[in-house]
Amino acid sequence: ERLAYIADHLGFSWTELARELDFTEEQIHQIRIENPNSLQDQSHALLKYWLERDGKHATDTNLVECLTKINRMDIVHLME
């Protein structure tokens, strides 16, 4: 799945992406607590919560915009 692929590449950027996707610091902290050992797991959790929260509004376009804002064009190019 594309989101899994994106999550695998996010690394430390997942928190920046979370902020761009309008997650609160508290929500970010919660994701860290729930997935303490792996940045990859934290990234996967973030994208899963985003899909659950935004439903049909959780679009590739939205994700590309946010990834561009945090200067992760490498991931944007991987999505093309």
Rank of each mutant, 00 (worst) to 15 (best):
Y5M: 01
R19L: 11
I70E: 03
I31Q: 01
S38P: 00
S13Q: 14
G55C: 06
I31Y: 02
D60N: 02
L3W: 06
K56T: 12
H57K: 14
K56G: 11
F23P: 00
R53P: 04
D74R: 01
N71Q: 07
I28W: 01
D60R: 08
W50V: 11
G55W: 06
F12Y: 04
Q42V: 04
D8W: 02
Y5L: 15
R19F: 04
I75C: 03
F12M: 14
A4D: 14
Q27F: 12
L3S: 14
G55M: 09
L39F: 12
D74K: 02
L46V: 08
I28E: 05
P36R: 08
S38F: 05
T68N: 03
A18D: 02
L10I: 10
N71A: 13
S43D: 02
S13G: 10
V64D: 04
A7L: 12
L17R: 00
T59Q: 13
T24K: 15
L21V: 04
N71M: 05
Q42G: 02
Q30P: 00
Q40A: 06
L17K: 00
L67A: 04
H29T: 12
W50N: 10
N71S: 11
D41G: 13
W50P: 01
L10P: 00
L3V: 12
E16Y: 08
N71F: 02
Q27Y: 03
T68R: 08
L46A: 15
M73V: 14
I28L: 09
D8K: 12
P36M: 12
E16T: 14
L51E: 06
I70N: 01
T15M: 04
S13M: 06
P36T: 09
E52C: 05
H57G: 11
T68A: 09
R53A: 09
A58D: 05
A58M: 03
N37G: 11
K56Q: 08
M73S: 15
W50Y: 05
D74W: 01
E26W: 06
L39A: 14
T68G: 10
Q30C: 10
E65H: 09
W14L: 03
L10C: 04
D41K: 10
R32H: 14
F12N: 05
L17Q: 00
R53E: 05
I70D: 01
R2V: 13
Y49C: 14
R72P: 01
I33L: 07
G11P: 01
I70Y: 01
I31S: 01
T15E: 04
S13A: 07
Y5W: 05
E26G: 09
A7R: 15
R32K: 15
I70P: 00
M73C: 15
R53L: 03
V76D: 04
R19H: 14
T24Q: 13
L39E: 11
H29E: 10
I33M: 13
L17D: 00
C66D: 02
L63P: 01
V64Q: 08
D54W: 10
T61D: 11
E26H: 14
L21P: 00
L63D: 00
E26Q: 06
L51A: 05
G11D: 09
L17C: 10
G11L: 06
R19W: 12
H29G: 13
H9L: 11
T68L: 08
T15K: 15
E16F: 07
I6K: 01
L17W: 01
S43M: 00
R19C: 07
I6W: 02
E65C: 05
R32S: 09
D22N: 06
N62R: 12
F12H: 06
E65A: 12
N71H: 05
A18S: 04
Q27A: 06
A58N: 14
P36L: 08
H29M: 05
E52V: 13
E20C: 05
T68P: 07
A7W: 09
N62E: 07
Q40M: 15
V64I: 13
L63H: 01
T15S: 13
A58V: 11
A18W: 00
M79K: 03
E16L: 14
T68F: 14
K48V: 08
C66T: 08
Q30E: 12
W14K: 00
T59N: 09
D41R: 09
A45V: 15
L39M: 10
D60L: 11
R53F: 03
R72W: 01
H29A: 12
